[in-house]
């Protein structure tokens, strides 16, 4: 039986993990390879690396990081953050990334999704969508690291990216992100029902029950979180045991 996936997300800058990782037993919590290997051993199903480097050397450091991670890691991983061209994607895939996630570049020129899917196959093209709830107006898509409202309806945009050939949608609720009050069940459920590709839910995870809810009530295919894993608030194994007790198929 296909299992629901648990995905820790690591922010990296200049090839180092950032955003306060507090982990005992890691000599260097800033080393993405050490952290990735630890998550893999604990039972993470996949990892996402979000690159927030803003320098000119960005591409070279990201490719080097991907290579180092791929050399060590025996589970799949996705790389995202400021990726905008076919040659960017090619360099990352050829060096061992399993999937590449695009966001602002797809909003700027949606045809990029078709081109990437045709060139590399849908299976490795993830579209990340950042949505925020407005009253009135509903869920709208933001771009440029969540700083700019495109005015696009979130559900319509997700349907469009799936139609254009995205193999997976990484849906982040900016309204829930950082709250630890749980995932955005309404928009996650609406997108998951509307598209035929897998949906990764992100933003708001604070408890094990939040994951149960996003899988059972919103039909997400995977749940992504950062700080609750980095700070050791929830262990991946205990989370998966909880999910299994709730009748959700997980890999243990």
């Amino acid at each position: 039986m296909l299992t629901k996936r648990i995905i820790p997300c690591l922010d990296v800058k200049d090839g180092r993990t950032v955003k306060g990782v507090r982990f005992e037993g890691l000599r260097d919590a800033g080393d993405p390879v050490a952290l990735a290997s630890r998550y893999a051993r604990e039972g993470a199903d996949e990892l996402v690396f979000l690159d927030i480097t803003a320098t000119n050397q960005k591409r070279a450091t990201l490719v080097a990081l991907v290579r180092d991670v791929a050399r060590e890691l025996d589970i799949p991983f996705t790389v995202g953050g400021g990726i905008g061209t076919i040659s960017d994607v090619e360099a990352l895939l050829m060096n061992g990334a399993d999937k590449v996630s695009i966001n602002s570049a797809a909003l700027a020129r949606p045809e990029l999704i078709d081109e990437l899917a045709a060139r590399f196959g849908s299976q490795c093209i993830v579209v990340a969508a950042d949505a925020r709830y407005h009253e009135p107006g509903g869920w709208q898509i933001y771009t440029r690291a969540g700083t700019h409202n495109t005015g696009l309806d979130a559900l319509q945009w997700c349907q469009e990216v799936a139609d254009r050939g995205a193999g997976e949608i990484l849906l982040t609720s900016m309204s829930n992100d950082g709250t630890k009050d749980g995932f955005a069940l309404d928009i996650t459920g609406a997108v998951s029902r509307a598209v035929s590709v897998p949906v990764v839910a992100s933003g708001g995870a604070g408890s094990k029950q939040d994951f149960t809810n996003v899988f059972q009530l919103a039909h997400a295919d995977a749940g992504l979180a950062a700080s609750i894993f980095h700070f050791g608030e929830i262990g991946i194994r205990e989370l998966k045991e909880h999910l299994r007790q709730d009748g959700i198929a997980v890999r243990l």
């Binding site: 299992t3 629901k4 996936r5 849908s122 590709v197 295919d221």
Partner: peptide
Amino acid sequence: PEYKVPHMGWN
């Protein structure tokens, strides 16, 4: 509806 394509993940 319950079986997304691609079949992606651990089975």
